[in-house]
Design a protein around this nucleic acid. Structure first.
Length: 839
RNA sequence: GCCGAGGUGGCGGAACGGCAGACGCGACGGACUUAAAAUCCGUUGGGCAUCGCAGCCCGUGCGGGUUCGAGUCCCGCCCUCGGUACCA
């Protein structure tokens, strides 16, 4: 329906080689694939380190091998392609690679459902997606392609795992971890999203106590909070900061009186030591190890029942009680050492074992949760921080702000901030408290009970224990003949040829680790591999990594804020400390494009609203689809896919085609006759160059295209008026093509060739504006009376205030509003406006 | 609840504190055509007024404020979207 119509050619002044009887029309499919083949054959986009130009590493998050590129992929990839092309034309030595995130559960599910091996399924998808990416007109250096599921890549993933292990950053531990019953695997905290559901399949996760492999990301918590070396969107930095959840407080020991305990202390973490005189009870998580020992015989039945009930609850149930604070008394007491008070010990599921010490001191007067709990269970509430103007009466709700300390013995009268420090110091001096920093961030759980991932290169030997696979034996390859069971159990576990091996240390019989690595491990270092994808001595060639890295510009979706983006930052810092690299951050600049939605919802296969760009590409060409996606609105805002406007871009490109191919250069005067018109053309051209350049720098593609449309409209008038010389016309047309080359690489290459220019437009320098040509000589001065616009006058830029005032007062429309009144004030903004305030 | 982004014509969206609505879509009118499509030209925030030319008033989620001047800055709300949530 959107087919380009035949363009009627009346003259061929620009390219006499075309025969008049031919009816040349712009056939996007033919033209675009022809140029794509040529670029590919010429290796136009391959780069090396041998260059005197400054380097620029531009990277887009590589796609998961789901099978098809939908419009969301295009929205992520086309604009970054434009930016990379722009940088290349600006003279940078640009590394702009592409690859595939190829491990993951969907491949394994396909194996179970359709009896196709994950490798075959994945590689078919890679083939398909690679050709779709090429059809987009992208300028990737395909000689550097990486596919994470190939042994030549995951060998180095395993190699890096061993480096972390030897560096003390990978460890195996038993812990209560998130288990997704549908995916049949554990998940990292970051992969459990809102309401405790699995990030991939949205199934509620449950807690399981199993031995797993972890990376010590928590060791880097503080450094991860330092964003001073990167230019990232505030929103992503805020999300990471919240996720890491650093909080400063005091770990306080409460005394315990119990005959069986070696350590007579209950440790709690608090951020409000200033409220310690308000403690009226303490609460332990139901799973807290002391619960069993402390519970008195009378309370045991109630406690046991509550603990058992908590265990059966899923995360969702436990969290969805909506503020309903349940709990039971253990019968035991602890001593608040500041005032010697005995406080009852309760257990309640609002206290989490995984945070802080798994126990809290409860100050109902100054904590909303403790307040609810105290109200519900009839526990006392004692005010120790007085709100401003406090009458001394009981509080109606918890007062959590700062105030003046009361009921706090010798700390009374201090502000809560002073009291915080004073009490913390006092407790430290008495050795039962210590200033501590606690984080919400947990170590990264990286093992998965799945087949389609990089095997963890570890061996279990009855004699030697846990033994690493020697580097020389890498990669530990996935067995091709594993059996995919409909139950979803890990195929590796039941693959004898894989499991049974020899111990690298003692040569005796041993078992392989059957867990594989989280796919986020593969994507934590892929940006390094692109620098030297052929290197076979290590994961990367230090020289080439030092040349290209860090990534100068990274682009991708915000959904990876606390997954991929956090893991990659950790990973770079970790291997820096192992001496493998010498920089601190993987991605210097980050730009997050928004989400493209359809029918008000995120596109998803399950919702059935996935837009496939192929039909649009076939009818209109990739150039039109690229440009339309960029024209919808600001890139960072995303937007709704609605094809009703796509014809506007189609028409515009058509107009450019006509303008270039039908305008006879010979019909313009050979020499300048109207210098004013020519000067204006020059100015408009250079102002457009400036606008387009600045917009490309800032990823403001929509306004860049608007400026180019305006410029095209202007050139159409110039082509009609023919008041400029042929040379001036040729120059401006040439700049139009160059400015649009990153956006519409095929059409511009075609027009560039048709106008007799040497191949290729994409190796040309980007136009540069002249400052003197963008400067204004005349400006439109807005004349206001009492802030309302009454007239506009065109004046030379050199006009003085007095001249402007006199000129303004002489305007009839201004006169009408000033006459008979007194001008009490005059606001003059040079080059902008003149405001007359009258009374 | 907390953090972040946003709210502007029929629609997508422009606008260093200084002409609100660039650019595009759609709609309407005209040219071309046997006709339609495509293309080209024109109009297009609302209201008043006008043969036409001018002209006047209102208008950027709501309510205040700062300023000669506010879509833009400040204070208080409402709504939408994204993230996060018993984190002590």
């Amino acid at each position: 329906m959107y087919l380009f119509l035949p363009v009627s050619f009346n003259s061929f002044a620009l390219f006499g080689k075309l025969h008049v009887n031919m009816v040349p029309k712009y056939n996007p499919s033919e033209t675009e694939t022809r140029w794509q083949d040529r670029w590919s054959a010429d290796r136009l986009y391959q780069v090396t380190e041998e260059s005197t130009s400054p380097k620029w590493y531009e990277l887009t998050m590589f796609p998961y091998t789901s099978g098809d590129l939908h419009i969301g992929h295009w929205y992520a990839m086309a604009p970054s392609d434009v930016h990379a092309r722009f940088r290349r034309m600006q003279g940078y030595n640009v590394l702009y690679p592409m690859g595939f995130d190829a491990f993951g559960l969907p491949a394994e599910n396909a194996a179970i459902r359709h009896s196709i091996h994950p490798f075959i399924w994945t590689m078919q998808n890679v083939e398909n997606m690679r050709s779709q990416l090429k059809r987009m007109g992208s300028c990737y250096d395909w000689s550097r392609e990486i596919i994470t599921c190939l042994p030549e890549y995951y060998k180095w993933t395993q190699w890096l795992f061993l480096k972390l292990y030897h560096g003390g950053l990978a460890y195996r531990a038993k812990a209560p971890v998130n288990w997704c019953p549908l995916c049949q695997t554990v998940l990292a905290n970051e992969q459990v999203i809102a309401e405790g559901i699995c990030e991939r399949c949205e199934t509620p996760v449950i807690k399981k106590d199993i031995e797993q492999w972890f990376f010590r990301i928590t060791r880097y918590a503080d450094e991860l909070l330092d964003y001073s070396k990167i230019q990232w969107p505030e929103r992503i930095k805020a999300m990471q900061t919240n996720w890491i959840g650093r909080s400063e407080g005091v770990e306080v020991g409460f005394g315990l009186e119990h005959p069986d305990l070696a350590d007579q202390e209950l440790r709690v973490f608090t951020t409000r030591p200033d409220t310690i005189y308000g403690v009226t009870f303490a609460v332990l998580a139901p799973e807290h190890p002391l619960v069993d020992k402390l519970t008195t015989p009378e309370q045991r039945p109630a406690v046991d029942e509550y603990v058992a009930h908590t265990k059966t609850q899923t995360e969702i149930e436990r969290l969805s009680t909506d503020g309903e604070k349940t709990g039971v008394f253990t019968g035991a007491y602890a001593i608040n050492r500041l005032n010697g008070e005995r406080v009852p010990l309760w257990i309640a599921d609002y206290v989490l074992l995984s945070y802080g010490t798994g126990a809290v001191m409860a100050v109902p007067a100054h904590d909303a949760r403790d307040f609810d709990f105290a109200r519900k269970h009839g526990l006392p509430i004692r005010t120790v921080i007085a709100p401003p103007g406090w009458s001394g009466r009981d509080l109606d709700e918890a007062y959590v702000e700062s105030g003046t300390m009361v009921n706090s013995a010798r700390f009374d009268g201090m502000t809560s901030e002073q009291g915080w420090q004073a009490i913390a110091s006092y407790m430290e001096s008495q050795s039962y408290g210590k200033r501590t920093v606690t984080y919400r961030l947990r170590d990264w759980l990286i093992s998965r009970q799945r087949y389609w991932g990089a095997p963890i290169p570890m061996v279990y030997c009855d004699k030697c224990g846990i033994v690493t696979v020697p580097e020389s034996d890498l990669p530990v390859e996935l067995p091709p003949d594993a059996e995919f069971r409909p139950t979803g159990e890990s195929p590796l576990k039941y693959c004898d040829s894989f499991v049974h091996t020899r111990c690298p240390a003692c040569e005796g019989p041993a078992r392989r680790e059957t867990d594989t690595m989280d796919t986020f491990m593969c994507s934590s270092w892929y940006m390094l591999r692109y620098a030297s994808p052929d290197y076979d001595q290590a994961a990367f060639d230090p020289d080439r990594v030092n040349y290209w890295l860090p990534v100068d510009q990274y682009t991708g979706g915000a959904e990876h804020a606390v997954m991929h983006l956090l893991y990659a930052r950790f990973f770079i810092k970790a291997i820096r400390d192992l001496g493998l690299i010498n920089f601190d951050e993987p991605f210097l600049r980050l730009f997050n494009q928004g989400t493209i939605i359809a029918q008000r919802h995120k596109m998803s296969k399950s919702r059935g609203n996935v837009i496939n760009p192929d039909q649009y590409v076939a009818e209109l060409g990739a150039d039109v689809v690229r440009a339309y996606l960029m024209f919808i609105g600001p890139w960072e805002q995303g937007g709704e896919w609605d094809d009703s406007g796509i014809n506007g871009i189609n028409r515009w490109f058509h107009r450019i085609w006509t303008l270039v191919t039908e305008t006879q250069e010979a019909s313009f005067p050979a020499h300048t006759v109207n210098s004013e018109a020519e000067h204006e053309l020059l100015q408009k051209t250079h102002r457009t160059i400036k606008k387009v350049t600045e917009d490309l720098e800032r990823f403001r593609f929509n306004t860049m295209l608007a400026a180019l449309m305006e410029f095209t409209n202007y050139l159409s008038k110039v082509a009609t008026d023919k008041a400029v010389s042929a040379a001036a016309w040729r120059e401006s047309l040439r700049d139009l093509l160059l400015l649009l080359a990153p956006t519409a690489p095929h059409l511009m290459e075609e027009l560039w060739a048709l106008t007799g220019n040497p191949y290729s437009i994409h190796t040309q320098p980007f136009p540069v504006w002249g400052e003197q040509l963008v400067a204004e000589e005349e400006v439109t001065l807005v004349i206001q009376v009492n802030g309302k616009v009454r007239d506009k006058i065109v004046v030379p830029i050199s006009i003085t205030q007095a001249e402007a005032r006199d000129l303004a007062l002489a305007q009839p429309r201004v006169k009408a509003h000033v006459e008979g009144k007194e001008v009490t004030k005059l606001v003059y903004v040079p080059r902008k406006l003149l405001n007359l305030v009258v009374k």
